[in-house]
Nucleic acid binder design. Structure first.
Lengths: 282, 282
DNA sequence: GGAAAAATGGAATAAAAATTCTAAAGATAT
DNA sequence: ATATCTTTAGAATTTTTATTCCATTTTTCC
């Protein structure tokens, strides 16, 4: 009874930690080759995650079929299923919560409860912030600040979805005593609003997919006139990148059709304060 | 000569960083689908590491054969070879992900300050999000949605620091097909902009300490004319509370003199989507 | 505006990998 | 000691996955 391959206490685990626990608990009751595999798997988890049945079998000193038996003895469909556990673990380390959010969304059925709606957006925001910590390089960030600090006036460019970020920058820079002009493109006067900028100024341009043409065009125009351009965008393939002297990457997570702006705001605030501090030093 | 698929300067890279650099340098000379794939690969590296040709192709919106062409155009034997690069990166990253950050922070001297600035704002944002989960009660949130969903037109009120939130709401509501008007108070025309509102409409007012008088005044005026008011504010003592039919509490954390807006944004997005969904039900 | 070259989509094919099956070896219990 | 049950090795098979090829479309250059 207690030796059943599947009892209540050791149901097939769906995450690495559970699997680890299960393997350890079965250590003494496993047959030779399977025990050997268990030991190998726990000490070379990345190899199990990436390897092929044949490759792992050779390194572990067993037959390929043993891997399949091993996986099945734990309750998985086959080796491929077991491998998923090891892969998921690596994924988590480098979080792409996309899937987690998807699960959250699906679980609510068609009737999305309002509370989970709020949860979802809060999660997306938190995820974005976490990602930003990795994607923004301190050196680039410093260079961006350097560029902005040297500018006489900072021209702020951001349309549609990211307009709020640009608008906030206008507020923050103003508070900090840094001269900044928000190009709000009112009455289609964008080009004229930017017309007074010179090489001694700088442009802070913000744009995410789908890139608003106005922002890209104005940034390109500024670059052509040798005005330093600092860009905040979401991919190296953004049209802003070609115009920018320095660019910072922010990939915001989305929930439903809407993307967070949290990381962009945090970055914008840090840029503003950093710029003001740098100026004080000069 | 310079257009050779393999010149001295862009030899096939054997690590992720090199690959990234190569892709960026070729950004402008790549054909459409390959560029699309390059962008996808850089923004979903884990998927490239773990996925199959067919799976990745589908997510990236290209044909499987394009993946192979892509890999070969970079000088690899085939997709499998390219995939090795992405896998190697995950392996390396795995052990010292936290450590790398620490080392980076300690070693870089002058970049330390700016990096910690960014950390600080990101932290403040994360804290705000955490707090909001507790401070916003689901029932209140539902009532707010109910009120907004019944409105014919939603008037958005937010000045100074929170203007970006109101501006974003205008964008989101527009996208969702909900009629909304942003009271931007341009040329001091706020009272006139709000003049057309009736009891069948609603006002969404946002204000935090120090409460901007305009917002409080306009919200009070609206309440006097029996226009339903939903408020997002930071305390029970806010002047908005007396005018509001429903109010939601959001206490943003600050870093230095600047307060986060992340929680407000998440709440605003959730309100917008919730309202649109509620309307669809009616 | 038309010829040549490059890029693309999609099916066909080849390669690789996982899984299954069976005979043989090894335990276990009576 | 031997009959039975479990475990294992290795080859055979099936399934999955990557790659190739070619007709069609798109771009480029004259």
């Amino acid at each position: 009874m207690g030796a059943d391959s599947e009892s209540i206490t050791d149901a097939t685990p769906e995450d690495y930690e559970g699997l680890r626990t299960l393997l350890l608990s079965r250590r003494d009751t496993m047959p030779k080759r399977l025990k050997q595999l268990a030991a190998f798997a726990l000490s070379h988890p990345e190899e199990v995650a990436f390897g092929t049945v044949a490759g792992i079998a050779e390194h572990a000193g067993v037959q390929p079929s043993t891997l399949v038996r091993f996986a099945k003895s734990l309750g998985y469909d086959g080796f491929s299923h077991l491998q998923q556990i090891f892969r998921a673990r690596l994924r988590e380390r480098f979080p792409d919560y996309r899937e987690r959010l998807r699960v959250l969304r699906d679980s609510e059925g068609s009737h999305v409860q309002s509370a989970s709606l709020l949860e979802g957006f809060a999660d997306a925001a938190a995820v974005s912030l976490g990602r930003m910590r990795e994607s923004v390089r301190p050196e680039e960030f410093s260079r961006a600040i350097e560029t902005l600090a040297k500018a006489d006036t900072i021209y702020l460019l951001g349309a549609r979805r990211v307009f709020p970020v640009a608008a906030y920058c206008a507020y923050a820079f103003g508070k900090l005593g840094v001269r900044a002009i928000l190009i709000d493109h009112i009455a289609q006067l964008g080009p004229e609003q930017l017309g007074t900028a010179t090489e001694r100024d700088a442009v802070l341009a913000i744009s995410f997919t789908p890139y608003s043409p106005v922002t890209a065009d104005l940034a390109a125009a500024a670059a052509r006139r040798d005005i330093p351009v600092v860009a905040i965008t979401d991919s190296a393939f953004s049209p802003l990148v070609t115009s920018a002297d320095v660019w910072l990457e922010v990939a915001e997570a989305d929930f439903g059709a809407f993307r967070s702006l949290s990381a962009s705001f945090a970055l914008a605030m840090a840029l503003a304060v950093g710029t003001a501090e740098r100026r004080a030093e000069i």
